[in-house]
Amino acid sequence: MGEQKIAEDNVLAIRDLAVEFKTDIGMTYAVRDVSFSVPRGKVTAVVGESGSGKSVTANCIMRLIQPPGKIVSGSIDFSPTRTDGYDIVSLSNKDPRLFDLRGDLMSMVFQEPMTALSPVYTVGNQVAEAILCHRDVSEAEAWQEAVDMLTRVGIDDVSRRIHQYPFEFSGGMRQRVVIAMALVCNPELLICDEPTTALDVTIQAEILTLIRDLQQELKNSVLFITHDLGVVAQLADQVVVMYQGRVLEIGTVRQVLKDPLHPYTRGLLAAIPGLAQKGERLETISSVVGDADLETPYPLTQMADGRQVSLSPDLLREAGHE
C-alpha cells in the first residue's frame, strides 16, 4: 500500500495531541505528541499497558475530556463522507457539529458495561434516545429502530426486554445494548475502549465476533482499544502501540506482530503466554526493555515499509533506517 493512498483515505488524522490533567500535586501529561491516522473502513487497534493514555486519546476524539483534563495542543482532522471535514480539537464546546459528531458520525463503546447505562431508564429509552438526538423521527419510529438494532446485536425477546431496566441485564447483554446504542445511527467511526475487558472470557469472544461481523457488514471504520494482543491479531488491520502517553510504533498488524521494531513491542509479544515457547518462563516487559529506551521520548520516524517507530538513533540504524 503506497503511503499517499493511506493519507487520502483516512477518516481521522491525529497530530501532536497533548492532554494535561491538573491534580492535587500539580499538572501531569496524560498523552503527549500523539500522532496517528485511522484508515477508512479498516480496524485500527491501539495497544498499550494500563495508564498509557489509550482512553484519554479516544476521549479526545469525541471531545469527552472533562476538567481537570484539557487538550493543550494538537489537531484531530476528521473527514467523514457524509459532510465536510473539520478539526475536532478546534470546535467550540457549543458547536452544533460537535453534537452531530457524537453518536451520529462517530460513537463509542466503553469498558464498563455495568455502569455505562443509566439505572433509572429502560434500555429501549436509552437506545431510542440515540436516534431521537440525531434523526427527525417520531418516538415510535425511533423505538422500532431500536428494536431492530437490539435484535441485530443478538438480544432475544426484544419486545419484552426493551422495557426492562439495565440492572435486569447481564454484563454481556448490557454490552450488546451499548453496542446497539453506538451503531444505531450507523456512525462512520466506531471507537471501542476495551469493550471486553470487564467480561467473562466466553462472553468476550462473543462480543468480539459481534463487533467484527457488524464491522464487515456496515463497513465503518473502527478504532479498537485493548491491551490484549490476541484480540489485535483477530481484529485489526493496523496497530498503534502506546506507552506512557506516547506512540512507540505504528504499522500493519502483520508488521507489528510478526516483526516488531520497538523493543517494548517485542516485550509485549514475549509476555503473551500463547506466543511464548512451552516451558520457557514468561518474560516481564521491563526485563526485556532497558528502561532507558522508554524514559526518553524520541520522535516517530517513518520507515521505508510505511510503518513508524520511535527509537533512539542507534536502534534506528540497527533497524535499517538510513
Partner: peptide, 13 residues
C-alpha cells in the same frame, strides 16, 4: 528531553 520524562513522574507523598 529529560525534562519531559520528569513530567511523567508523580512525586511520592
Amino acid at each position: 528531553m529529560s525534562e519531559l520524562a520528569a513530567d511523567f513522574q508523580v512525586e511520592a507523598v
